[in-house]
Design a protein around this nucleic acid. Structure first.
Lengths: 346, 346
DNA sequence: CTTAGCACTCTCTCGGTGAGAGTGCTAAGT
DNA sequence: ACTTAGCACTCTCACCGAGAGAGTGCTAAG
């Protein structure tokens, strides 16, 4: 497949087909392209080119006498080589800025706000992967003794976010001892993940050959318990927007999609992939290897606090989504969120 | 309307119509009733009775040559006077008991588990209204100083649930002072809501004529801030189950419903009504005064910790839901959750 | 009071038909 | 050599009408 060997005319026509299909949702014929996009050419000429594009695998014909529809490959070429990246309007930018203001510093609120504003502005479905305890870098840790077996761990991230977790312990540790442990941990903390803290403790224990230092041992145990068994959390906004889309008018398809959204584990798997990479990513249809995403596209970008990637935010929509606008939207939002989480508050 | 003046035969026939409609989803004719439910009567006789029931307003005919469908009033009479209350099977009971085990003591988990098990077993949509800070009675309160303006409030309920909230304060309060305040509040706490604590402080301030006692003043302020601006939280499980239902095959209706679920405020409003009342409640179709619920029924029951009603759990489904089974399911679950939240853990 | 019989009404399914859209191919034009 | 007009062909979709099926209300007889 000579993906990058398209000549100007082929590129123009592919672009036109995709644009038209994105707005209309109906297979687009040569006539429409000739009239609406390339007036100096006749329908017959365009037909020839379209036949070529179909052969390369960029277009597809649902049936003999229908127009053409882009394939996954066609969209891929479009987003990689054809698409321009428009900016959002000032109005939209300020709507986002207004919409995302984490008052309390609790991640839940921030995630809700992000998913809300993304789904409102896109009219599609927003997905946000929350920061994980393991991923985040922390400024402070506190332990609150709840009862004999349970302790509440309070973590304040460098970004100002506050996360909590209840952990179960085997031995009784009283509050003064907990305070000592947190003082000890806090001394090591600062711009560092909990995993790194653990490693440092282990290193220090080795170095000091003091394997039975109770304080260190307990600090290690509490850190472990805190990191233990954490699964990603996804916030979904505007799932109902799928009902707008004519291509999901079929109830079976709708059901499939809604079930996929409820069974969040698959979604987390895809989003996790975006977590490792830097920058915005687009996953089109079958590219995702997940059955339910066959007919969907994901536009997602990681967000950071400082240099640490914390989570992912994005939009899920039909493959005929307005990629250019959505890229602008997701990109702007991710940058804004990163900025908010990076500016350390007093 | 002489609602309770139905004779035996009318009751039998109404019950038969409702049972058949609930399982089949199709308008039921006199023939079917005669064959399947009341073999000693002829279709013609049943037709006469059905005509009567239609006149009273319990049945309705979609068109001249269709069978009958129950009206909201018909369902209402059924659940009030006709329905028996079966027990769940042992298998189901133990599935629920297995499914609801709040490990961490964080309400989120418990709510998730409840909504999951309810939607799994009912094959409809589960709704759970989370406990509110204001409603709950507390065993302990702690404050963790986060930074200049923010404090984390940690509340341990009598039920063992742990809830947190970040509040913003105007004046700087350091950790030792926060500890003093929490000691003071803890002394008043125990089987009591935060609102009552506030009232007691106010009373004591009045009594001691010591309006400028800083400790009390600050304790009061922190309690106020904690209660401030709390909105109900709803957990929804199995929304995709609506797609099973033939009556929502119409995409427009589906969309309406999904949007209603996303816009949770309306749902909260309905559930709040169930919060005040004791015991299980059934709301059928237009009884709810909320447009989106027109075609839906809600079966909900409050759950308690000790004598305090904390929240509500229930099931939303089409009006032709299997009321008897759902009532058993919701009732059992509410009792179980109440039991879990009442048994004080060590 | 119950029931059999009957005419009537309404819906739903199915096959057929024709309009419309779009194509590929061929041959002529530039 | 590329472009375009013309044309036959294919496929879908909306529409129509007929007929089966289901259920009713009414009447008259048991």
């Amino acid at each position: 497949m000579l993906t990058r060997e398209l000549n100007l005319r082929q590129r123009q026509i592919l672009k036109a087909v995709i644009h038209d299909y994105i707005t209309s949702g109906e297979p687009v014929g040569s006539r429409i392209i000739a009239r609406r996009y390339l007036e100096h050419l006749s329908a017959a000429t365009i037909r020839n080119v379209m036949a070529d594009l179909e052969e390369i695998g960029y277009l597809f014909q649902p049936h003999t006498s229908a127009g053409r529809v882009p394939t996954d490959l066609g969209y891929r070429f479009y987003v990689d080589s054809l698409m321009q990246r428009p900016r959002l309007s000032k109005t939209e930018e300020s709507r986002i800025e207004q919409g995302i203001r984490p008052g309390s510093g609790q991640p839940e609120e921030l995630m809700q706000e992000i998913s809300r504003i993304l789904s409102d502005l896109s009219r599609y479905t927003a997905v946000v992967l929350a920061p994980k305890l393991a991923q985040n870098t922390w400024r402070r840790i506190d332990f609150v003794h709840l009862n004999r077996e349970r302790i509440l761990v309070v973590l304040v991230a460098d970004s100002g976010l506050v996360q909590q977790k209840v952990i179960a312990i085997d031995e009784v540790i009283d509050q003064p001892e907990l305070d000592r442990i947190s003082r000890y941990l806090n001394a090591v903390l600062g711009g560092v993940t909990l995993r790194e803290v653990r490693d440092r403790i282990v290193a220090r224990m080795a170095e000091e050959r003091d394997e039975f230092n109770q304080l260190m041992r307990r600090a290690l145990e509490l850190s472990n318990k805190t990191l233990e068994g954490e699964e990603g959390q996804v916030y979904i906004g505007g799932a109902a927007n799928f009902a707008h889309q004519p291509e999901f008018a079929d109830v079976k398809k709708m059901k499939e999609i809604f079930e996929a959204f409820e069974e969040k584990s698959k979604l987390i798997k895809i989003l996790d992939q975006c977590l490792t990479r830097e920058g915005l990513r687009i996953i089109i249809g079958r590219e995702s290897a997940i059955k339910e995403m066959r007919e969907l596209s994901l536009i997602a970008s990681p967000y950071r606090s400082g240099d640490h990637v914390l989570g992912v935010l994005g939009i899920v929509g039909p493959k005929r989504i307005a990629y250019d606008r959505m890229v602008a939207l997701v990109d702007f939002t991710a940058r804004l969120v990163s900025k908010i989480l990076t500016e350390v508050d007093a």
